[in-house]
Simulated assay, not measured.
Amino acid sequence: MLTISEFGRRAGLSQKALRLYDVSGLLAPARVDPANGYRIYDEEQLERARRISVLRQLDMPLSTIADVLAGSDEQALILLDRWWAAEEATTAARRATLDYLRGRLNRTGLSGLSPRPVLTREVPATKIATIRAKTNQPMLVGVIVSGTDEIASYLRSAGATFTGGSWVIYHDAITLEAEGTVEICVPFEGLVDPAGPIAIRVEPAHHEAYCTITMDECSFPRIMLAYDLVFDWVRNQALEAGAPREVYQPNCQALPRDAPAVDIAQPFLVRRP
Score class of each variant (00 low, 15 high):
L58Y: 02
L58R: 02
D59T: 03
D59E: 10
P61N: 11
L62C: 07
S63M: 03
S63L: 04
T64C: 09
T64Q: 12
T64P: 08
T64L: 09
I65V: 06
A66C: 02
D67R: 13
D67S: 13
D67G: 08
V68I: 15
V68K: 00
L69V: 01
L69N: 01
L69R: 00
A70S: 12
G71P: 15
G71N: 14
S72E: 13
D73W: 10
D73V: 11
D73F: 10
E74C: 02
E74L: 08
Q75R: 06
Q75V: 02
Q75Y: 01
Q75I: 01
A76L: 03
A76E: 02
A76I: 01
A76P: 02
L77Y: 13
L77M: 15
L77V: 14
L79T: 11
L79K: 13
L80C: 02
L80M: 06
R82Q: 15
R82L: 08
W83L: 08
W84V: 07
W84E: 11
A85W: 01
A85C: 06
A85H: 05
A86G: 15
A86M: 04
E87Q: 15
E87N: 07
E87P: 01
E88D: 09
A89R: 01
A89H: 01
T90I: 01
T90N: 03
T90H: 02
T90L: 01
A92F: 04
A92P: 02
A92T: 05
A92Q: 09
A93N: 05
A93M: 09
A93V: 02
R95D: 09
A96Q: 14
A96P: 09
T97D: 08
L98H: 07
L98C: 04
L98V: 12
D99W: 03
Y100L: 11
Y100S: 07
L101P: 06
L101K: 12
R102L: 13
R102Q: 12
G103Q: 04
R104T: 14
R104A: 14
R104P: 00
R104K: 15
L105T: 05
R107P: 02
R107F: 10
R107N: 12
R107L: 14
R107Y: 09
T108F: 13
T108S: 15
G109S: 07
G109T: 05
G109F: 04
G109C: 04
G109W: 04
L110F: 11
L110M: 13
S111F: 12
S111R: 05
S111L: 05
S111E: 15
G112M: 08
G112L: 08
G112V: 08
L113T: 10
L113R: 10
L113Q: 10
P115S: 13
P115D: 13
R116Y: 04
R116A: 11
R116G: 10
R116V: 06
